[in-house]
């Protein structure tokens, strides 16, 4: 088992191997992604009963909650990929980290937008300085910082390293930021209406939500695969295997 994992790790370090194997894996991710998202959306929008307090507007959680969850775990994954790159100097990890950043930021943005849309009927205003929305906004800033830093560096090597260091510093800070924002929030808005807690949710609402969360994670995996494949082609563009591959594509 351990040996197999080690072998997989060493293979993951090879861009060519990754490019070839990911082409085979992709369909196996795309099909369930579409399936989960379709089932979850239809179930959540059409078959789940309306919330007794919020009516139909609560249904936006089927996008908001998975997006928010994913935005947070994507940041952690980016930082971990960055750490793998810093410690073992595995270039593939740096490319994965660079692929995750804009995807994570997009999900973060999506969570903010859906949060605002949800806020309008719930609180009567588009934006409320609610603890979760505020920490989502700060997370978006953290993503912006990493992306801007990666863009500003002139060498690819230092862009990858700088991004990795910053995302690790950010990862250490996320719990602190979250804690302080929640603390600040209880101080200023004790009476804010809380979002529906997952634990108190009715079963028929929870199941489609779980399906949507699974769908979002799969979608994330597909997007990361696709972006990383592009990164591989770009960074290895001068290597023979890419040239041959491009030639064979052109010949077809």
């Amino acid at each position: 088992m351990w040996e197999a994992l080690k072998r997989l790790y060493h293979r993951m370090g090879s861009p060519k191997w990754f490019y070839e194997i990911s082409a085979k894996w992709l369909p196996w991710f795309v099909v369930p992604t579409v399936g989960f998202l379709l089932v979850g959306t239809i179930w959540g929008l059409a078959f789940t009963p309306a919330d007794y307090q919020q009516g139909n507007s609560f249904r936006i959680i089927y996008i908001h909650v998975p997006a928010a969850l994913l935005a947070q775990s994507a940041y952690a994954m980016m930082a971990i990929a960055g750490a793998v790159f810093l410690i073992w100097r595995m270039k593939m990890a740096a490319w994965v980290a660079a692929s995750i950043a804009p995807i994570g930021a997009s999900f973060c943005f999506l969570a903010l937008i859906t949060g605002a849309i949800w806020g309008k009927p719930t609180w009567g205003t588009w934006w409320v300085w609610d603890a979760r929305l505020t920490s989502m906004l700060l997370l978006l800033f953290l993503y912006f910082g990493v992306m801007a830093l990666q863009k500003a560096m002139d060498s690819e090597e230092s862009a990858a390293k700088a991004g990795a260091i910053l995302s690790l510093v950010g990862l250490v800070n996320i719990p602190i930021i979250k804690y302080s924002v929640e603390w600040w929030n209880t101080l200023h808005q004790p009476a804010t209406l809380k979002f529906t807690e997952e634990s108190t949710m009715a079963m028929e609402m929870l199941i489609p939500l779980l399906i949507m969360i699974a769908g979002f994670y799969l979608l994330f995996a597909v997007l990361v695969f696709m972006r990383t494949r592009n990164q591989v082609l770009w960074h290895e563009r001068k290597k023979n295997w890419v040239k041959q591959y491009m030639q064979s594509r052109a010949d077809k």
Partner: peptide
Amino acid sequence: LLSLVILPLYIPILIF
């Protein structure tokens, strides 16, 4: 760029 990178990390200090 420095401000962009650092400001979010300053939030907890500012709050407390």
